[in-house]
């Protein structure tokens, strides 16, 4: 019987045979970050027990302001609806921790690690690439680190947050749309130069 560690795993983008590399002065870099722990957290922000339980598990309360992100050492928590958050983290045990923490409350933790993949778009022209396909105002006066939004990018729906001033965007995309998004971003980035980087 095979050991889980030795099994073949395939990320959403593996079938594309993406080649790492590209010009060092590229205007944007692209990276797939495939297997972070990703959780949909549901609960009532008005329930103090709930927010406290989440803080206990994640080190931070879920944001109550629409379109904002709170983050701790272990996790980033993105506001997606008045009673819904996207949590992502490198901690593979987080689903169990969080589920345990909110047990008995009116809350739900649903693992969506594989439902999504994450594409990181970064570089001095990252914003220029984003606004080709996204109608949200991403000007630094309007959108910066600590903010997230669900919107269209090209012909699909994504959830993304900005993680630094470079700028860098973490784009969460349904796995089956990842190939489209990757091709879209690569093509949209052509005029600025694109470098592909490995996750890690």
């Amino acid at each position: 019987m095979a050991d889980l560690e030795t099994l073949t795993t395939r990320t959403a983008l593996d079938p594309m045979d993406i080649v790492i590399g590209g010009p060092s002065d590229a205007g944007v870099t692209l990276t797939e970050i495939p297997f972070q722990t990703r959780l949909v957290l549901r609960g009532l922000p008005s329930d103090k027990k709930f927010t406290a339980a989440v803080k206990g598990a994640l080190g931070v309360e879920p944001p109550s302001k629409p379109g904002t992100v709170t983050s701790s050492k272990t996790a980033r928590v993105l506001w997606t609806a008045p009673n819904e958050w996207m949590v992502y983290s490198d901690d593979t045990g987080l689903a169990a921790t969080l589920t345990k923490a909110v047990a008995g409350l009116h809350a739900a933790v649903t693992e969506v690690t594989e439902h999504y993949t994450l594409i990181r778009l970064s570089g001095r022209h990252a914003r220029d690439v984003m606004i080709k396909g996204c109608a949200i105002d991403l000007h630094p006066r309007e959108f910066g680190p600590g903010q997230c939004v669900q919107s269209h990018l090209g012909r699909i729906t994504v959830l993304f947050d900005q993680t630094d001033e470079t700028p860098s965007y973490h784009i969460l995309v349904r796995a089956s749309f990842a190939e489209y998004l990757w091709m879209y971003l690569e093509d949209a980035g052509l005029e600025f130069g694109v470098r592909i980087e490995a996750a890690g």
Binding site: V40, N83, A107, A108, E111, V112, A175, S176
Partner: peptide, 8 residues
């Protein structure tokens, strides 16, 4: 609560 897990 409902959450889509189609591609999970």
């Amino acid at each position: 609560f409902f959450s889509s897990v189609t591609e999970q």
